[in-house]
């Protein structure tokens, strides 16, 4: 059902331009990778704090408030560069298990981060229930790692 749409994406002007260039795909992929590093730092520093590592003398709320603009900014950069990469090989993605795995993990990770995790941190629930804070961090790390695993494996499939 979605295949005609994926095929249309690949035959779009943007998809064809990236496909026809030797350096456009690697350059966009590099931007995507730098974004990966930024988002990893912004997610890790908060989850590490919830697990009791890293900036332990600051509250999780304080750490998260500082990391949030970098997390959201890098997420925007990653989605934008990711859409460009997708356009150039949409048909391959359609048949790729890692691609669907990555998109499902990404949707879950975004929903979890901006609903449950946000609530735990905003209401300082991690201070009253340390186990809840740790569980939140582990789910968050698991979901984001799923995104990273799928992302790297699209290229190998």
């Amino acid at each position: 059902m979605l295949l005609p749409f994926f095929s249309w994406c690949e035959h779009s002007w943007i998809g064809q331009t990236i496909q026809g260039s030797v350096w456009l795909f690697p350059v966009i992929e590099s931007i995507h990778l730098v974004g990966l590093g930024v988002i990893a730092g912004a997610v890790l520093i908060v989850d590490m704090r919830l697990l009791g590592f890293g900036l332990r003398s600051q509250s999780a709320e304080e750490v998260a408030a500082n990391a949030r603009p970098w997390m959201i900014g890098s997420l925007v950069l990653m989605v934008a560069s990711g859409i460009l990469l997708f356009l150039s090989e949409a048909t391959k993605c359609y048949y790729s298990f890692p691609f669907w795995f990555k998109m499902s993990s990404l949707a879950l990770a975004i929903v979890f981060t901006f609903t449950l995790k946000r609530r735990v941190i905003r209401q300082n629930l991690d201070q009253r229930y340390p186990l809840l804070g740790k569980a939140t961090a582990i789910v968050s790390l698991g979901l984001w790692f799923g995104v990273a695993w799928g992302g790297r494996w699209i290229g190998f499939s």
């Binding site: 590093g37 930024v38 990893a40 890790l44």
Partner: peptide
């Protein structure tokens, strides 16, 4: 790649602190 992400992300936060752009 995954180690790069962890390394660069955490080193970046330190560098951004040096620039006064986060964790002030």
């Amino acid at each position: 790649v995954w180690c790069m992400a962890a390394f660069f992300g955490l080193a970046l936060l330190f560098d951004l602190r040096l620039l006064g752009w986060t964790m002030r």
